[in-house]
Amino acid sequence: MKRSNYQIAKALLISGLIFSTYIGTIQAAQPSYKLTDLGALTTTGSSAAVDINNHGQIVGYSWAAGQQTSATIWDKGQISLLGGHALMSSATAINDSGVVVGYNETSSGQNAVVWTNGQASILDSNTATALDINSHGVIAGATYNSGPTIWINGTMEQLPIINSYYFSVARGINNLGQVVGSYELTTADWQIYTRAALWSNGNGIDIGAADGFSSSYAEKINDAGDIVGQSHNGFNGGAHATLWRNGVAIDLGSLNDGTEASFAMDINSHGQIVGYSQSGLFSPENNARAVIWFADLNPVMLDTLIDPLDPLYGQVSLYTAKGINDLGQIVGYGLINGKERAFLLSPLATVPEPGSMAMLLAGLGLFGIASRRNKQA
């Protein structure tokens, strides 16, 4: 008996729905990661990675026992010392053109620094720091006498002062020129709070804190305008990673169902957020655990997502995740084989669960049957 066009169309529709469900399952699944120990400038030294661009170039700092940190770049698997003589230096961000920003300390004070092709240039020597750079080369940071600052083509511009330039910092900048950070708010009764801030279109505004928290600060902003950072209640209060989306401050929770402190450090264009969670606001670093938040905004410990077949599986304790690029690659630092080292986590292809694969095969089977009967009709 020949099938009607209606029956064939119905079979194709069902198989299409099954297939789309399967694709959605893959997209929603948590990836597993390959872990790379990025090494240090010396074989017995330590290191930390803080940012990664979309070409896989990584920056941070490295140090040997008893020595100060040195700004470091990892490029194509090679680790190098960034140029410029200083007592101490650190790289804080890198854009897709490979331009690096950070700061160094010399006998005369702290300087905001930009490294181009590995060569250092001083942006500002007035107790300044450079913390982020966008794809257009605009740099965000702060100076002691001017507070939140951007540098455009090497020229400093002070951002609008919200309350006072003291303790005001610009920490992140996106490709639209929007800047985030924090400022100090002093109330009429002399209560002092740190508050998250957004500078956009020539204006600076307080973007608030998550419910239950009085203070906040912002770390990074993506091109969609999503902002990440932290809400807290001062030195002795609780603290939670926070996402600001569409004007709403969202509490991202922590690994221990609200009893731990958590910090969101970076967000990519897909809304994936990385940071860390620890037992308290000032608990030791070795109590911290690197965390990722996917689309459901639930924290997941990154240690648990390392591929079980990875040679380093079970031999690490990842303390904090500092940066994530649009490919989903994550950098930070932790304990690897007993050494404090910078790490790179690279997502592996998601393997569908058996049930999802069965659904796909069933759908394709229906599609094949319908196609054959259509030809016989």
Rank of each mutant, 00 (worst) to 15 (best):
R3N: 04
Q7T: 13
A11K: 11
I18Q: 04
Y22S: 05
G24Q: 15
I26S: 00
Y33N: 05
T36N: 14
D37H: 09
G39C: 14
A40F: 04
V50C: 09
N54C: 03
H55T: 08
I58K: 07
G60P: 05
S62L: 05
G66Y: 05
Q67F: 03
T72S: 03
G84A: 00
M88Q: 14
N104V: 01
S108T: 15
G109Y: 11
Q110G: 09
A112E: 05
S121T: 09
A128I: 02
G137E: 14
P148T: 13
P148C: 11
I152W: 06
N153R: 12
E157R: 10
Q158K: 09
L159Y: 03
I161S: 09
Y165H: 11
Y166P: 03
R171P: 00
G177N: 08
T187S: 11
Y193T: 08
G204L: 04
Y217W: 12
I221G: 07
D226R: 13
I227E: 04
G238L: 10
L243H: 04
R245A: 04
D251R: 08
G253H: 14
S254Q: 15
S262D: 08
A264H: 09
H270F: 09
Q278W: 13
D303K: 13
D310A: 02
P311A: 04
L312K: 06
Y319A: 07
A321G: 08
G323W: 01
D326I: 07
Q329N: 08
V331T: 06
V331L: 04
L345Y: 12
L345R: 08
S346H: 01
T350A: 14
V351T: 14
M357V: 15
F367R: 07
I369V: 12
A370C: 02
S371Y: 14
S371R: 10
S371G: 15
Q376L: 13
A377H: 10
